[in-house]
Simulated scan of single mutants.
Amino acid sequence: MIRLAEERDIQSILKVTKSCAKFMISNGVFQWNDDYPNKSAFQNDIKRNELYVLELDDGIKGCIVISTLMDSEYIPIEWLTKNENNIYIHRLAVHPQLQGKGYAQQLMHFAEQFAIDNNYSSIRLDTFSKNKRNQKFYELRGYKRLGDIYFPKQSEFPFHCYEQVL
């Protein structure tokens, strides 16, 4: 089940994202670290009603942020649509023990259906340039790579920006 996250979910969400960070780092992908994603980011997501969790029988196993807020880092990108009716995907995570079972696909389908149901013009996101698995995941879903941005607190390497027009 995918549902809106609540404050009481934060510790479980952090367990998932910390496990993902550790898993990525062990595979040479330095996308997430001890500083990101963090509790305050998830608290802000909850306040904005933009954080959703994947809940299975034994607890929270994934999350996704579906936001209407365009981060300032995205301003230089030449997007395919106007900057007025878009959603942004952030912090998509599935516990490493459950990866490869279609749960990330479910979370993305949920976000895409949310965008369609609410008449957004596109979905935008970024993924780490060294995370080839994520790039393939989004490209197979029809997202177009448009340019690069940087998050110096996370990595010296760029993050690729993607958009899918609805």
Results as ranks from 00 to 15, higher is better:
I116V: 14
H90I: 12
A115F: 04
P76A: 10
E84M: 06
L140P: 07
K101D: 12
I123T: 15
T68M: 08
T68K: 14
L125F: 04
T127N: 13
H95N: 01
E112M: 09
L140K: 15
I89M: 05
L80P: 01
L80I: 03
D117R: 10
Q97K: 14
P76G: 10
E84Q: 06
P76E: 07
R133W: 05
H109G: 04
N118W: 07
D117Y: 06
H109P: 00
Y120E: 08
A93M: 01
G100P: 00
I66Q: 02
S72N: 11
I66E: 03
L92I: 15
R133N: 13
L92T: 10
G102N: 11
N119S: 15
F110Y: 11
I77V: 09
S122Y: 04
L140Q: 15
Q113K: 14
K136H: 14
L107T: 12
I75S: 09
T81D: 00
K101A: 09
E112L: 05
Q113F: 06
Y138Q: 13
I123V: 15
K136M: 10
F110D: 02
S129C: 10
I116M: 10
A93F: 01
I75L: 12
I77R: 00
K82P: 00
E73R: 08
Y138L: 07
F137H: 13
K132H: 14
Q97L: 13
F114R: 01
N86Y: 00
F137E: 14
P76S: 07
R145M: 11
K130I: 00
K132M: 10
D71Y: 10
K144D: 11
S122Q: 10
V94F: 03
Q99R: 13
I77M: 03
K82Q: 09
L125Y: 08
L92E: 02
R124I: 03
L125I: 07
M70S: 12
A104I: 11
S72M: 09
N118P: 05
T68E: 15
Q99E: 13
L146K: 12
P76L: 04
N119V: 10
H109D: 15
N118M: 11
H95F: 01
N83E: 01
A111R: 03
Y143V: 09
Y120N: 07
A111T: 14
S122D: 08
G100T: 12
E78Q: 09
P96S: 03
S121P: 00
N118S: 10
V94H: 03
L146E: 12
I87M: 12
N131D: 15
L125H: 07
Y103N: 03
N119A: 15
F114H: 08
S67R: 06
F110P: 00
G142E: 13
A115D: 07
S121E: 15
I116T: 14
K144V: 07
Y143D: 15
S129I: 03
D126H: 12
D71F: 07
S121F: 07
N119T: 08
G100L: 05
R91A: 06
I89R: 04
